Simulated assay, not measured.
Amino acid sequence: MPEYPQTSADGRFSEIWTLADDIPGWLTEAQAELLHEQALALPSGSLAVEMGSHQGRSTVVLAHALDQRKSRLVAIDPFVDGRLFGGGRTRILFEKNIATSGVADVVELVCDYSTSARKNWTRGFDLLYIDGKHDYWTVGDDLKWRVHLPEGAPVLIHDCFSSIGVTLGILVRVLPSRDLRYERRAGSLALFRVGRPSGRDRLRILAELPWWLRNVVVKILLRLRLRPVARLLGHDSPYDPY
Rank of each mutant, 00 (worst) to 15 (best):
P5R: 05
G87W: 04
M1W: 06
V147P: 00
S53I: 01
A20E: 04
S237V: 06
Q38G: 00
L73R: 06
D105H: 15
A190T: 02
G132V: 09
C160E: 03
L191I: 03
P24R: 10
L213K: 03
E3L: 13
S53W: 00
D10I: 12
R69D: 05
A9P: 10
I220Q: 08
E29Q: 15
T18H: 11
V106D: 01
A230S: 13
G234D: 02
S101D: 02
Q6H: 11
S58Q: 07
L27Q: 10
P197L: 01
D131K: 07
I23R: 09
E208W: 01
L128E: 04
L233N: 06
A63V: 02
A39G: 12
L47H: 13
L232C: 13
Y242Q: 08
A48C: 07
G234P: 03
G187D: 09
E3K: 14
A32Q: 03
L233V: 05
S14W: 00
S237I: 08
D21A: 13
D201P: 05
L109F: 04
V106R: 02
A104F: 00
A153D: 12
L93E: 14
I205A: 09
L84F: 12
W137M: 00
G52K: 11
P24Y: 07
D21E: 14
W121E: 05
A63T: 06
D22T: 15
Y239L: 14
R181V: 03
G152A: 05
Q31N: 02
P197V: 02
V80C: 04
S14D: 15
G169F: 13
L128N: 10
Q38F: 02
G82A: 04
R202Q: 07
P150G: 12
T28I: 01
V172G: 00
Y129W: 11
R123T: 07
R72Q: 06
D105P: 02
P78F: 09
T28D: 09
R227V: 03
